[in-house]
Computed example of a mutant assay.
Amino acid sequence: MTPRATGVRAPYDAVPVAVRAWVDSVLGSPVVTVAEQVGGMSPGCATRVTCADGTRAFVKAVGAELNPDSPTLFRREILALTLIGSHQSWADLMASYDDGAWVALVLEDIEGRHPDLADDTDMDLLLGAVDSLGVLLGERVPDPPRPAPWSGEGPRPAALFRPGLCDLSETFRDWLDAFDQAHELPAGQVPSWVIERQTVLRPGVAALLDQPTDRLVHFDIRDDNLLVRPTGELVFLDWGATGIGPDWLDPLLARLERVHLPWFDASVVRSPALARAGDGTVTSWLVGMGVTLAWRAHTQVVVGLPTLQAFRRAESARFLSAAARRLGI
């Protein structure tokens, strides 16, 4: 299946010669064939490579010239994979490269397919795997390192684009800022009920800042970031958004492919972590995320990601529609 989140990627031969030479050196044999992969929003390459001696690997590389924020996400993925070590639930990091402008990862090449999350079998596989992932990450990294507070000059960047792990408490603060400005959006960017009920909805979005943020979380669980091995195990890919957040966050993300269906509401109740968080928290998360995506789609200038704004608008509409259903609107 083709993932819903699909950007425009640079091919491997567009990666600087120095980076490709480093890949050859790391793998111990020159790359002779490449297979470009689709899915995800990064403008960098995502390439399965095969070397002259038969060695295979998966290479990701991006430069600031393609998008100024993407190298930060790649550096975070390197940090995350270093923290969690080796396991069959994700691709092993074989080597990393960073010359200040370009960042690259050489990863274990995983055979598999993207799951079809409209299929009950694949969805059940994901829900079980994401619960196991939460336990595993807690065991591997019980005290994840917090990023330093932002101290740079100029406007404060979104938490996702600051160095280190993503601090979800800061992300929720970003969401509240966007929510407070939602009335400035042109008509039609968010449903009218959001603006009409802004005062009523605000305490729920603000309460997200009070959620405990002490667990290592993947924070980017979508079909394009998952593979099912031929033997049936699920593999979590793309750790560039990895953060410190609440234990219910990844179980929530795992269910978002069906957020438009009543199935989502019933499934949330069956999840121990989401049941502890409560229905109100889940609905406020959908409101906060939905409004933030609409705000960013309208206000941010995005370099090198031509499909991102349309994706943001589509996801915003899905999340806010689900929130409306849950609120009885």
Rank of each mutant, 00 (worst) to 15 (best):
V8T: 11
A10S: 13
A10T: 06
P11F: 04
Y12S: 08
D13R: 11
A14P: 03
A14E: 14
V15L: 13
P16V: 11
P16F: 10
P16L: 10
V17D: 07
V17S: 05
A18L: 09
A18V: 14
V19K: 12
R20F: 02
R20C: 03
A21T: 12
W22M: 10
W22L: 10
W22Y: 13
V23W: 02
V23G: 04
V23M: 05
D24P: 01
D24H: 04
V26Y: 00
V26L: 01
V26G: 00
L27Y: 03
L27H: 00
L27W: 04
G28A: 12
G28K: 11
G28Y: 05
P30S: 04
P30F: 07
V32G: 09
V32T: 15
T33P: 06
T33W: 08
T33I: 08
A35N: 13
E36W: 07
E36S: 09
E36M: 03
E36A: 13
E36T: 01
Q37H: 08
Q37Y: 01
V38F: 09
V38T: 13
V38S: 12
M41Q: 11
M41P: 04
S42F: 03
P43W: 02
P43L: 01
G44K: 00
G44P: 00
G44D: 00
C45Q: 07
C45V: 13
C45A: 12
C45T: 15
C45F: 05
A46C: 08
A46R: 06
T47C: 15
R48F: 14
R48H: 15
V49D: 04
C51R: 03
A52W: 05
A52V: 12
G54I: 10
G54P: 12
T55C: 08
R56F: 10
R56N: 12
R56A: 15
R56V: 15
F58A: 05
F58D: 03
F58C: 11
